[in-house]
Simulated assay, not measured.
Amino acid sequence: MINMIEMEFKKMQVGNEILAYRECGEGNRTLLLVHGNMSSSLHFDHLMNALSDEFKIYAPDLRGFGHSSYHESFDSLKALSEDLEYFVDKLRLRDIELVGWSTGGGIAMQFAADNPDITKRLVLLESVGVTGYPLYLKDEAGQPDLSRPLMTKSEIAADPIQVAPVLEALSKGDSAFYRALWDAAIYTGAKKPAVEDYVRYISEMLLQRNLVDIDYALSRFNMTNLENVYGKGTGDVKKIKCPVVVVQGEKDIVVPMSMAEEILDHLECEKTLKVLKNSGHNPMVDQLEKVTSIIIG
């Protein structure tokens, strides 16, 4: 049985929203953890426990996730990055080391690009690529038609494979659906969470209210100068100046290795790739000790 340290659970007014966040640690380094889609800051609990001697740690629930508010919808990951700017400014944080997981990796990259003066280091865990995660119309077999991207939020909400079933599960509080989905897509590596942890994680997953906004924002995310079906990117990836560590599980079927390679290809700063064997989309469960070691550096 792992002895878990006590974590403070707080809330803060951030613009028009209230962000809930977990805080712990006594170290002299500052760590900001940014969670991904279909999750919350709770998914970092064992990682926070493992890093608490080295870091002072802050892990917010992003807008529309977990216990944070969702007063305003959004169209971009930059909007969530700006929430974090308010958050760190109110806490007067500097020399921040960011860890972004999955969708949180895109938000963390945007934050690092927009705030190079206070961002010391960036660790990306199974991060979305710098040209986003587009969604396409599905054929009768459920396969995407790459010539027909989903352009509007209503089209995304109606997607019969990736979105509509999740929206229905959220509306019904269907924990069995979520467990089956995560067993199939997320926990494809060495381990699954302990039973009691899994129950807690799913209860927080079901608090999400922004799924269509997030999927729309991911499809439009593009920090490069390249043009895709949604238009030309912002080029913001070139503004990232801090060292970046890209962590990629070899068994991740949600974010493929090509996205990690894409990030590395476009970064112009110091960069490193760490490949985790027998690890899927949640390395905090599959390879906690290795992830802890990488973050400590």
Rank of each mutant, 00 (worst) to 15 (best):
M1F: 12
M4K: 03
I5C: 10
E8C: 01
M12S: 13
Q13M: 15
E17T: 08
I18L: 04
C24M: 05
E26G: 07
E26I: 10
S40P: 06
L42P: 11
L42R: 08
D45R: 01
N49S: 10
A50F: 04
D53T: 07
F55P: 13
K56W: 02
I57H: 08
R63V: 09
G66R: 08
F74I: 04
L84Q: 11
L91A: 11
I96Y: 10
E97A: 03
L98P: 11
V99I: 07
G100R: 01
S102E: 04
I107S: 06
A108W: 02
Q110R: 05
I118M: 12
T119Y: 15
R121Y: 12
L122E: 15
V123I: 12
E126F: 10
V128F: 00
V130M: 00
L135Q: 14
Y136N: 15
Y136I: 13
A141I: 15
P144Q: 15
L146T: 14
R148W: 03
R148T: 13
P149Q: 15
D159H: 15
P160D: 08
A164M: 04
L167N: 07
L167K: 03
S171H: 03
F177D: 03
F177W: 12
Y178G: 04
L181W: 14
W182I: 00
A184V: 12
K191M: 10
A194V: 04
V195E: 00
D197M: 15
R200L: 12
R209I: 01
N210S: 08
N210Q: 02
V212C: 04
D213Y: 06
I214C: 13
S219E: 12
S219H: 15
R220M: 06
F221T: 00
N228P: 06
N228G: 07
G231N: 05
K232V: 14
K232Y: 05
V237R: 01
K241Q: 09
P243K: 01
Q248H: 09
I253M: 10
S258W: 13
I263H: 12
E268M: 10
E270P: 04
E270D: 14
E270Y: 09
T272W: 03
L273D: 04
L273R: 02
G280M: 05
K290S: 02
K290M: 00
V291K: 00
I294N: 06
I296R: 10
